[in-house]
Structures are given as structure tokens and as C-alpha cells.
């Protein structure tokens, strides 16, 4: 993946509102919710803890490391996705399970339990061409950001455009 300086000058926009953010340093992470009462974690973020019903959940950045719980190779998908691709459920070390695509690994080298790293990155236009992602805003010079998983050792990449001000605790997902 190459990122031009022109792209870097654009503001980043999460592919689904509120699910990820990128700081001024160009490092991105998913945004979850943490319950200060019982310690439960949620992704995507929620308003009330379903375990203890506390309503003051904190929106927190989630770490990028996790373990592959299970995976598939998808051969038939919605028209905006180019097939085949590997998709897995990854249990992040923050104790949330996240679905995402796996890249930089051959399908026959994927193993249950392998360590993976989540990376926020620009969404290549051909990957998700017709996704209705508030295309007006994209046209106003914002770049759509999403995330994918890579084997721990293979994970590295250029910084991505910041998403602007971090969400507040009151913001709805």
C-alpha cells in the first residue's frame, strides 16, 4: 500500500461513523466502550453495559493486537467486494471480538489462534466502490478509512490521515 502526500493532506473519515479514529500522529485504532463498573468491553461502542446496566460507559481506544478465533475465505459477496478474500473473527487483547479482512497472508497459511495486528488504512476505492458511505463528504476531500488485519510480523505501514477531534464520552456510536 502506498500513500501519496496529497492523500495524506486530506482528512480521514471512518468507513462506518464512530468505529475508528486516527490521531495527529497518523496512528489509528478502533473505538470501543469500557464499563468502569464491571470492566466489560464492547465493540462497537454502546451506551449502557448489558452486563451491569451502568450507563456511564467510557469510549476507549482499543489495542491492535489479537488472536484469530476463526476465519473463512469468501468467494461470493456483495458487488462492492472483490472476491476471494479472507475474513476472520479476531479476539483483541482488550477482550472484544472484531470481524475483519486478513491480508498479507496466504489462505493456506492462516491458522486458528495465530496472532494478528489490526491496522487502520485508507480504503482502496476498488475494494468498496459502491458502498453508500456519505459520498458527498468523500467528494469534499475526505479519505475513507477502514481497517484490516495482518500477521503480527508483517504489520507495518505508513501513517494515515487523522480523523480530527476525538469523540467525546457522550457521543452516540
Amino acid at each position: 500500500m502506498t500513500t501519496t502526500s496529497a492523500e495524506m493532506s486530506q482528512a480521514g473519515m471512518p468507513f462506518v461513523p464512530g468505529v475508528l479514529e486516527v490521531g495527529p500522529d497518523g496512528k489509528g485504532h478502533l473505538v470501543g466502550a469500557h464499563c468502569p463498573g464491571c470492566g466489560a468491553s464492547y465493540f462497537p461502542a454502546r451506551s449502557v453495559c448489558s452486563r451491569c446496566l451502568r450507563g456511564d460507559l467510557e469510549r476507549v481506544p482499543l489495542g491492535s493486537s489479537g488472536t484469530l478465533y476463526t476465519y473463512t475465505v469468501i468467494h461470493q459477496s456483495l458487488p462492492q467486494f472483490e472476491t476471494p478474500y479472507i475474513l476472520g473473527y479476531v479476539d483483541l487483547d482488550d477482550n472484544v471480538r472484531v470481524a475483519g479482512q486478513l491480508v498479507d497472508v496466504e489462505a493456506d497459511a492462516v491458522e486458528l489462534g495465530m496472532r494478528l495486528t489490526l491496522q487502520v488504512e485508507p480504503l482502496a476505492s476498488q475494494t468498496l466502490a459502491s458502498q453508500p458511505l456519505q459520498s458527498g463528504e468523500v467528494g469534499e476531500g475526505k479519505q475513507v478509512l477502514w481497517f484490516r488485519f495482518r500477521p503480527e510480523a508483517a504489520a507495518s505501514g505508513p501513517p494515515v490521515p487523522p480523523t480530527g477531534k476525538p469523540p467525546t464520552g457522550k457521543e452516540q456510536p
Partner: peptide, 12 residues
């Protein structure tokens, strides 16, 4: 939005 389909859920 990340590309999970219903067959994908059950395949996993």
C-alpha cells in the same frame, strides 16, 4: 461493511 456475509458468519 468489512465484507462479512451471512454465509461467511456460518462458515466461520
Amino acid at each position: 461493511a468489512v465484507g462479512l456475509t451471512m454465509p461467511g458468519v456460518y462458515a466461520m
